[in-house]
Structures are given as structure tokens and as C-alpha cells.
């Protein structure tokens, strides 16, 4: 028995015509059509293209919810083992349609899906995390190569084989870092790369430098004498005994503690549970991480209006960016509701 595959292509590759029929509604044709014929050859006896959905790029783009639902219904009835869309190369609307339908089918029907695109296709950024997008050339000149990669990856997906790194499998990575056991130990790989780099040869870094998110600065505090200031820390300062069981590293939560009655953080009442620095000093006097003593003094002296009654705290070591962002959003919302005007955040 061979595996069952359903394909998706646009009106052009489906032989219906060009832009003039871009509003072509989804239609199921039995067996392979267009690029599917070559794909079928590559699958050989292992898999069979049982049907092909042909849909106009304009139709999918303008009626995305409806088009998606119609295609989903067709695929649900056919119950294939794999869904293949495109390849869309650098065609924007086609890429978005391929990405969208693949993502929907994998998510709703739990059927593996894949498509093919040029890395700059807008469909890549939108759907790379939700399906497999094989890297292709910018135009149909790269058809043969694209289909070869797609057929190879497709069979692996159907069989549930363990996949290697994205660059080896030929798809555009989904933004996930995964550990592998490599052929050579790290020191040897490093020396190879270094000698290639010195010789001016091409080399492959194992991690490209990221770009970081920035935001425009919030407006400053105009009237500090009446401003409420909150203290926030990622230095892991908590009441002794860590009542909320914050994790010492890779934090998944933050906690808030009432400091309204306190003038000072004493080692009898507070401690550091942070797993990333020598906590000797913080445990002698937690104020070296959270400056409560000085904040109270300045509050009394009238340097600023009022100290917010709650301290927000977490541990910032090995904590994922996603979690840190979530803590920030939740704390930000609470502080806004509480009418806080500014924050002093200390990190270790």
C-alpha cells in the first residue's frame, strides 16, 4: 500500500489561465496536475497523489476564511497522509495561500504539510513556524530542484522519521533551536571554520547573530514630586523560604510582595534565590539588589511622591525571552492600572 498525498496549486499551474482567472474557486481534480506529475514520479511507488486542489490566487487572498474552509473540507474527506502546496517560488499571494492552507491543515487535521518558497516570499515569515517550507529559487526555473527536496522531505514527514537540521533537510527553519549529536566534536568544527575563514573560503556559522527588538522610549515623568515609583527586580529577592517557589533559574513565574510596611530589606526576612550569581552579598543585605532602604529615605525627603506598595520579583538567569516578555506585559498592565508613573528595575 502506498501513502496518499493531496496537492494544492494555483490557477496558473492548474492550467486554468493567468491573472484573468485569479478568482477561480477551489476545485478538486483527481490525481496529479502540473507540478504534481513530476512529484508523483519522484515519489515512485511509495506515495500516490490522489487529488489536486486548484484555487485562484485572487480568490484565496480575497476570501481567505472561506477559501481555507472550503479546502479544509475537501482534504478532510480525502484523509491523506500528506498535504503538499505549491511550490510558490517568489509569488506573494500564492505563497501566502500555500502557507495558510498548509498551516490550517496541520493544525486542524493533524496531517503533515509542506510547501516550497523563495526565502523572501512574504508567506515565509507568516507561516514558517506552522508548516515546512522548502527553500526554492525565485522562479519556476528552480522547479525540478524544489520538487526533489519536497518529495524527499514529504516522505520523511509521512513516515515520521526524525528530521535533521533544517539546512540539511532543505527547508526554511521554523525558529526552533534543537540539539543534535554531530559527526565531529565542537573543537574540531571550530578549527575547521577558523581556517576556512582565514583562507577567505566560505564557511557555515552554526548560529547567525540575531537582531534585537527595540521600542521608542516612553515619555519622561513630568512631576517627580507627586510621582509613584515601583520597584521591580530580576535579582531573585524573595521573602525567606521562597513562599511562591520561584525557580532559581529558567523562571516561569514572577511574584509580587507587599513592602508598604517596610523601611529596609533585612536578611532575616528576605533572601536571594537567584541561581546565577554569588549570593553572599545579597544575603547579607538584600538592599544591594533591591534598594528599598534608600527609596524610603528619598520618599520621606520628598524627592519623589510615593513608593508603590508592591515589589515585583523574578530570577533572570536562563529565563526564556518569551517568559521574560510575558512577565513584563503582565507587570506593565498591573502597574498601569495601579497608576504607577515610573519604574526602577534592577538586574543582576
Amino acid at each position: 500500500m502506498s501513502y496518499r498525498v493531496v496537492c494544492y496549486i494555483n490557477q496558473f499551474y492548474g492550467g486554468k489561465g493567468g491573472e484573468e482567472v485569479a478568482d477561480f474557486k477551489p476545485e478538486l481534480v483527481e490525481g496529479p496536475v502540473g507540478p504534481g506529475l513530476e512529484l508523483q514520479k519522484l515519489f515512485g511507488d511509495e506515495a500516490r497523489v490522489i487529488g489536486t486542489i486548484i484555487c485562484g490566487d485572487g480568490y484565496y487572498a480575497e476570501h481567505i476564511e472561506k477559501a481555507r474552509a472550503e479546502c479544509l473540507k475537501i482534504v478532510e474527506d480525502l484523509k491523506p497522509d500528506l498535504f503538499v502546496a505549491g511550490p510558490a517560488f517568489n509569488a506573494g499571494r500564492y505563497g501566502v495561500a500555500c502557507g495558510d492552507i498548509c498551516a490550517a491543515i496541520t493544525q486542524s487535521l493533524d496531517i503533515p504539510s509542506l510547501t516550497g518558497m523563495f526565502p523572501e516570499n512574504p508567506g515565509v515569515e507568516l507561516y514558517r513556524a506552522q508548516t515546512f517550507i522548502v527553500k526554492t529559487e525565485g522562479s519556476a526555473r528552480g522547479m525540478k530542484q524544489a520538487l526533489t527536496s519536497m518529495a524527499r522531505l514529504g516522505l520523511k514527514l509521512i513516515k515520521g522519521e526524525l528530521l535533521g537540521p533544517a539546512y540539511e533537510e532543505g527547508y526554511i527553519h521554523r525558529g526552533i533551536r534543537k540539539n543534535f549529536f554531530k559527526d565531529k566534536r565542537g573543537s574540531l568544527r571550530a578549527i575547521d571554520i577558523l581556517l576556512q575563514k582565514i583562507a577567505g573560503q566560505e564557511f557555515r556559522t552554526e548560529y547567525e547573530m540575531p537582531t534585537f527588538k527595540k521600542i521608542p522610549p516612553a515619555p519622561p515623568i513630568k512631576d517627580i514630586k507627586h510621582a509613584t515609583i515601583a520597584l521591580v527586580t530580576s535579582g531573585g529577592i524573595v521573602p525567606r523560604g521562597n513562599p511562591d517557589r520561584l525557580r532559581v533559574s529558567s523562571a516561569e513565574s514572577y511574584a509580587k510582595y507587599d513592602i508598604s510596611g517596610l523601611d529596609d530589606l533585612t536578611p532575616d526576612e528576605f533572601e536571594s534565590i537567584h541561581g546565577g550569581y554569588d549570593r553572599m552579598w545579597a544575603n547579607l543585605d538584600p538592599d544591594v539588589v533591591v534598594p528599598l532602604d534608600v527609596m524610603r529615605e528619598l520618599e520621606r525627603e520628598g524627592v519623589f511622591g510615593k513608593l508603590h506598595p508592591y515589589l515585583y520579583t523574578t530570577t533572570g538567569t536562563g529565563t526564556s525571552v518569551a517568559n521574560a516578555e510575558r512577565f513584563g506585559q503582565e507587570i506593565g498592565r498591573e502597574l498601569k492600572e495601579a497608576g504607577v508613573d515610573g519604574v526602577i528595575l534592577t538586574s543582576t
Binding site: 568544527r189 575563514k197 534585537f212 529558567s250 526564556s320
Partner: peptide
């Protein structure tokens, strides 16, 4: 060339490094 590990989160989706610089273009993980 640098050799370093990564702290990419339990799901592998977080920023791997706390700092970055364009000169660090040969990285072994």
C-alpha cells in the same frame, strides 16, 4: 571563531544569547 552553548529556552524558541555582535560571525554551538 567562538565556541559557546545557547540558552534558547525549553522550547528552543528564545534568543540563544544574552548579547550579540556582528563580528561574531563564526559560531560553533
Amino acid at each position: 571563531v567562538v565556541i559557546s552553548d545557547e540558552a534558547a529556552g525549553t522550547d528552543g524558541k528564545s534568543q540563544s544569547l544574552a548579547d550579540a555582535t556582528p563580528e561574531m560571525n563564526a559560531f560553533v554551538s
